[in-house]
Design a protein around this nucleic acid. Structure first.
Lengths: 161, 161
DNA sequence: GGCTATGATTGTAGCATACAACTATTGACG
DNA sequence: CGTCAATAGTTGTATGCTACAATCATAGCC
């Protein structure tokens, strides 16, 4: 790393902090409007295009199975998801959106799209292209870095032990 | 909004989702390594340069005072922060880092800087400039949008009521 | 000097999360 | 076949973060 980057790191970090809060906050607002919690929303969106087992879902979302089990409890109680049996393997659950669940997902998507469209609409072309490029770059690079580091977040969930 | 943006919104959203997880996850990793929770870290970083009252801190972090009170409890128990009385107004707390707290903040900063430096180091100049620009743009724009919307997240915290 | 405003704490409650213990089912191997 | 290890989920327990409501202490105003 060269010097030039040094003085840029501080602002960058604090902006990322703002971004973190804004992104999370926005999604929370979107989903809460639709009456589901953020965790439930994550799960719903993953089920938009596929049926998934609990284990599979927990792998995708990087959460403990027990956590997902309870999250799904809520979704089932809300009538948004059904736990269908897999005839081939009765240990497995096939988590599937109900029609109501599908409607909910559609509304969440609409809400999010509306927001992000407005976000981008307020920029000039150059800025917009820059932002679109960067978000992809950042997401890739951060994921790449995390996966390449040996003692990273979820590789070693034991932490304190 | 024009058509061109439509087909760009989907990927953009999913990349933002990744980003959200990565940013939060990274900070969690950084701070956990240093033995404080994420919420505690947020508070510590705000206290890096100033003494703040609980109310002030809660405004900055956009959290309920009661929440912060307990968070600060933890920091005090950990010996990182002291609740000093304000001689001029005995209702007020002046939250202040202890030397240990300052050390902790330094370590967190180091850890974060190292990570973000590496993140940027892996890009070519053009990408890096683009990313730096965008993060600022996005953060500003998202904050602006949120504050301008009447029925947004924290403007109307009642939500369901 | 009493009333209101302000700052902080504590009680209570809900959600998200993880780990550990447990049950049910499957599959493999002798 | 029958046992036993592996796999999928659920439930018990614990921790952290959060908010709202009630309460206490102090300050400031008439």
């Amino acid at each position: 790393m060269n010097r030039t980057e040094k003085h840029v790191l501080g602002p960058f970090r604090s902006q990322l902090r703002v971004l973190e809060r804004e992104i999370a906050g926005q999604r929370e607002a979107d989903t809460r409007c639709c009456g589901v919690t953020l965790a439930q929303c994550h799960a719903l969106l993953e089920l938009e295009n596929t049926e998934l087992s609990l284990t599979h879902l927990s792998a995708v979302l990087d959460l403990d199975i027990s956590t997902l089990s309870r999250t799904v409890d809520g979704l089932v109680r809300a009538g948004l998801v059904v736990r269908a049996e897999d005839p081939a393997d009765r240990r497995l659950l096939r988590l599937r959106l109900t029609p109501a669940g599908r409607g909910k997902v559609d509304r969440i998507n609409e809400e999010c799209n509306r927001y992000y469209a407005e976000l981008l609409a307020g920029m000039n072309d150059r800025d917009r292209r820059c932002v679109l490029r960067s978000v992809g770059l950042l997401a890739d690079r951060m994921r790449g870095l995390r996966l390449s580091l040996p003692c990273s977040t979820k590789e070693n969930p034991h932490g304190k032990k």
